[in-house]
Simulated scan of single mutants.
Amino acid sequence: MSAEPGTVRPGGRTARVRTAVLRAAGDVLAERGFAHLDLADVARRAEVGKTTVYRRWGSVTGLVADLLADMAEQSLPREETGSVLGDLRANASLVRWTLADARQGALFRAVIAAATCDERTAQALRRFYEVRVAEWAPCVEQGVARGELPPGTDAKAVVRAVSAPLYYELLTTGTAPDTPAAERAAQAAYAAAVAGVYVS
């Protein structure tokens, strides 16, 4: 079976082309939204051949899927502070920073909007969050091992509980969450976890 378009990651010129194309695609999404994402325009912006883009990614949704995979890989690793609350605060701070960033925040809004009407984009977005949640889940698991949280706590559910209100604020108000919002999200998820809300 052949690989999905855009998922082969050799080095050299091919890697440089991929980097340039994904950067251009992200720029278009942030500036104009999913509806205006066009492979020919992306090729022009990336200064690569249109045929190369069509052959490698095949479609706009293939390009978005690869962009999300790349973003998941490039996201900052988890920060371990020695306590569950500290780790959840670090996670909330990273999510807040991402959503407040002029390019990243606009890009996420565009991709989330596209995911509501395009199944392949929705699948790619789910994979992105699976990677990011799995990156931070060990912080909660370590908290369980230290006795900070009840045994059986669903680590991934706790991590999702931190970011959910921050994304909701962005999507419902159009305004990126601020630092107090990130602190509230971390505190609320932690309090719920301590109370056993996330015990499976």
Rank of each mutant, 00 (worst) to 15 (best):
E31P: 06
V159P: 04
S93E: 14
D154R: 04
A113F: 10
V53C: 00
K156W: 13
Y168V: 13
A3Q: 15
L39Q: 09
W136G: 00
A155P: 09
R160Q: 05
A164E: 04
L67N: 07
L22P: 02
D38F: 03
A192S: 13
T179Y: 12
E169W: 11
G33F: 08
A137D: 10
T172I: 13
A124G: 13
V140H: 01
C139P: 12
A137V: 06
Q123K: 15
A124L: 01
E47T: 15
G147Q: 09
C139L: 14
T19F: 08
Y190G: 02
A114S: 07
L37I: 04
T19V: 07
A193P: 01
L67H: 02
P177N: 10
Y198T: 07
R9Y: 03
E79N: 14
M71S: 07
D41V: 10
W57M: 12
E141S: 12
P77H: 12
V194S: 09
D38K: 10
T116N: 14
G6N: 03
A35M: 04
R55A: 14
D101C: 01
T179N: 11
A189K: 09
A100T: 00
G105K: 01
P165G: 08
A113I: 07
S83T: 09
T98S: 08
C117V: 15
K156D: 15
A186W: 06
S59F: 08
A191N: 11
V42M: 04
T121E: 02
V64H: 05
L76G: 10
M1I: 15
V64Y: 00
K156I: 11
A113G: 09
E183C: 00
M1H: 15
T98D: 12
A134R: 07
R160F: 03
W57N: 09
A186Q: 05
L22C: 07
L88E: 06
D38V: 08
T116Y: 11
G143M: 01
Y167S: 08
V199G: 02
E119W: 14
L166G: 03
